[in-house]
Amino acid sequence: MQVRELRHRVEIGDLLTRYARAVDGGDWDALDDVFTRDAVLDLTAPGGIKGGLAEVKSWLAEALARWPGRQHLLGVPLVEFPVDPGDTAIASVSFTDTLSPSRDVVQADTPGISRGGGIYHHDLVLLPEGWRSRAMRIEQQWRTMS
């Protein structure tokens, strides 16, 4: 593996983490540094929408408002470069997430807590400002709610 590829893998891992941190913190404008302006995000598997970045940011802000306590845990990403070395990549990363109706300590059986897991699939492109996702799809593998 070349140094350039290793650097790209680290940068892509950071990009995936920035996505999770933006969603967990409700920093919807931070998603502008994760996705291209024309990105298509498919959140339909867990019950969300499919659309452009602006539409999805607005939907996330409204849909996740009832769960101010949010946390993602990401696995190690699988990154593939169709052309080596190139300016495109495909990244998949497993995740678990917890959504809570409060940021305070609550009982584990508090109504409204949701836990789930799946895989984020990203089609990535290398731009002058760094790696960006031009398409993301969520593969939901499980979900529980109290």
Results as ranks from 00 to 15, higher is better:
residue 126 L to C: 04
residue 24 D to F: 01
residue 81 F to D: 03
residue 37 R to N: 05
residue 70 R to F: 07
residue 135 A to M: 11
residue 2 Q to Y: 03
residue 31 L to S: 04
residue 126 L to Q: 08
residue 52 G to H: 07
residue 33 D to T: 06
residue 68 P to Q: 13
residue 120 Y to M: 05
residue 129 E to M: 01
residue 8 H to L: 00
residue 22 A to H: 07
residue 108 A to F: 11
residue 83 V to S: 12
residue 43 L to S: 05
residue 39 A to S: 12
residue 67 W to S: 15
residue 145 M to D: 14
residue 110 T to S: 03
residue 82 P to E: 01
residue 135 A to R: 15
residue 79 V to S: 04
residue 127 L to T: 15
residue 135 A to H: 13
residue 78 L to N: 12
residue 15 L to K: 00
residue 117 G to Y: 12
residue 112 G to F: 06
residue 131 W to R: 01
residue 129 E to F: 03
residue 95 F to N: 03
residue 61 A to N: 05
residue 136 M to G: 01
residue 125 V to N: 04
residue 135 A to Q: 08
residue 3 V to T: 14
residue 94 S to P: 08
residue 111 P to I: 06
residue 132 R to T: 11
residue 106 V to R: 10
residue 122 H to N: 14
residue 111 P to D: 05
residue 63 A to P: 02
residue 74 L to I: 02
residue 13 G to S: 14
residue 89 A to T: 13
residue 143 R to W: 09
residue 129 E to K: 09
residue 85 P to E: 15
residue 126 L to A: 07
residue 34 V to Q: 00
residue 103 R to V: 15
residue 18 R to N: 00
residue 19 Y to Q: 01
residue 108 A to E: 05
residue 70 R to N: 12
residue 51 G to C: 13
residue 27 D to H: 15
residue 66 R to S: 14
residue 56 V to C: 11
residue 71 Q to E: 10
residue 67 W to T: 15
residue 94 S to A: 12
residue 113 I to P: 00
residue 38 D to Y: 06
residue 76 V to E: 09
residue 141 Q to D: 03
residue 118 G to Q: 11
residue 77 P to S: 00
residue 146 S to Q: 08
residue 66 R to D: 12
residue 44 T to Y: 05
residue 112 G to V: 12
residue 139 E to S: 09
residue 44 T to N: 07
residue 115 R to Y: 05
residue 109 D to T: 15
residue 43 L to V: 05
residue 118 G to A: 06
residue 103 R to E: 15
residue 142 W to P: 13
residue 109 D to V: 13
residue 41 L to C: 04
residue 33 D to H: 14
residue 50 K to D: 06
residue 107 Q to Y: 00
residue 10 V to L: 14
residue 119 I to D: 04
residue 85 P to T: 07
residue 15 L to E: 06
residue 145 M to C: 08
residue 86 G to P: 10
residue 58 S to K: 11
residue 75 G to M: 11
residue 20 A to Y: 05
residue 122 H to V: 06
residue 116 G to A: 03
residue 29 D to K: 11
